[in-house]
Design a protein around this nucleic acid. Structure first.
Lengths: 257, 257
DNA sequence: CGCCGGCGTTCGATATTCGAACATTCGTTC
DNA sequence: GAACGAATGTTCGAATATCGAACGCCGGCG
């Protein structure tokens, strides 16, 4: 798992990679780590893991309490730095919150990275008590409305290349797995400038997404509203969600470099 | 500025520190960096900066577009991992959102780190259009309600040590700068188990905060409601905000390890 | 008390990092 | 397009930062 070696690249700094591998070992499943655990997870010797943790502690990214090491809130600076370089996210958030509250549904923003969408903002509906999705979460682009609208901005050759090079998984009986059908969906969504994805990733989950574009017409991200198929029909989504999302996307887009 | 040397510690990994210094150079003021700019900001040779950026790019934390390097959304994995290690934040968010919406005020959660409070969750009031405060933001603990209640959990010697060792700044005419007065405020707030801070950091800004404690009675963080002095009296805050915040803190606290 | 597991320390070997000098590419101006 | 300067890419021997094995220390448990 830990990516700490690139023998073909003489410029690759293995020490830096080791450090980041240890940082990446902390998370929901591992809120704290002992020295030996860190060494095991990151596949390092105990002495190297110790040096890494001491360095990270002295830099303020990790805290030590007895034998337990844990992330320090200073690590938030790194994640926050990314968001602060994307001004459109900051501008989209207030209207997204208002919309989520008014419609009683979750509203999210994401970008396309490789074959995933990465969530960069999320306003969960009030009734949602878990944090299955949050900033930084990733989902397969091909089977989410957010991903579908963003894939529409690739040229056709690149879209085909991506379709052919990834393993397409059926998450539900509704998941579209045929390459031509997926290509046609993305193309149709590009033409209509929104996407509805219906129970392809999770039973009951239905979402509508629109792109957010910069001044050159390039997509910088997308925003969506998600709902449950028992609550909202596709027509209702088109009639109620689409104009709202387009309004936000237009306001945000007109100011995006 | 970049912290890349600790000559007294033989275990300090300078290569890792250099890499993190370059990562830390990106932000709102520097969304993209050229190789030479990165070298300058992080105070590294060009060759070292180049190695760092190449390594970070290969690990996926940085992207290169021509001569420009920028943070990749993959950095969100590192940056937001802290939040996923703190389960109380996740549990506090839904009721905080509901409360913020109902009262029409901003509701936040923060932890104490050194002399700062660090915001770990924030639900802005709907009318607030800017993102001056967000997850990761820091403010001086001594002059915020969130900080005051958390400082109350330090022992008295430690509190005095902190008072004496930091520079106390007067942000407004209302800012309390006398050490004894500050000590007395923190002590009084500890006894009453909430804090109201009134225009000490920013004119017009008034906030009430309560602590969130774990099962051992130790404070893990605090939550607040903030308002403007033209909208809410201190008595109204005590009568309307305090029971609401205490209700949330109690629910969250009873489940906190 | 003894044992064991986990962590701290030490230090010589070596793997990694370093940067200066040269080569190549890119962007700007005319 | 050509010329030029700035920025970046490449190379390689020297320097040094990193490595881990072995021993020491500490705390918890039987």
């Amino acid at each position: 798992m830990p990516d700490t070696e690139h023998p073909e690249d003489k410029e690759f700094m293995t020490t830096l990679a080791k450090g980041l591998a240890v940082l990446g070992a902390f998370g929901r499943e591992r809120p704290t780590l002992t020295l030996a655990e860190a060494a095991g997870v990151a596949d390092l010797s105990r002495a190297t893991a110790r040096r890494v943790l001491r360095t990270l502690t002295q830099l303020g990214y990790v805290e030590q309490n007895g034998r337990a090491f844990s992330l320090s809130p200073r690590i938030l600076d790194l994640g926050f730095a990314y968001l602060s370089t994307q001004s459109w996210i900051e501008r989209a958030l207030p209207p997204m919150r208002e919309l989520s509250e008014r419609l009683g549904e979750s509203c999210s923003a994401a970008i396309l990275q490789g074959n995933d969408v990465v969530y960069v903002a999320r306003v969960p509906a009030r009734r949602i008590m878990s944090a299955a999705l949050s900033v930084g979460s990733r989902l397969p682009a091909l089977h989410t409305a957010l991903g579908r609208v963003l894939l529409g901005y690739l040229d056709e050759a690149e879209l085909w290349r991506r379709l052919k090079s990834q393993r397409i998984e059926a998450y539900t009986p509704q998941t579209i797995t045929d390459l031509q059908a997926l290509f046609d969906r993305v193309s149709a969504d590009r033409a209509q400038r929104f996407s509805i994805v219906d129970e392809e990733l999770e039973r009951g989950l239905r979402a509508l997404a629109v792109p957010v574009c910069d001044r050159n017409g390039q997509a910088v991200g997308a925003i969506n509203l998600s709902t449950h198929s028992t609550r909202t029909t596709r027509n209702e989504m088109r009639q109620q969600f689409l104009p709202e999302l387009n309004r936000i996307a237009d306001v945000v887009s007109s100011m995006t470099i």
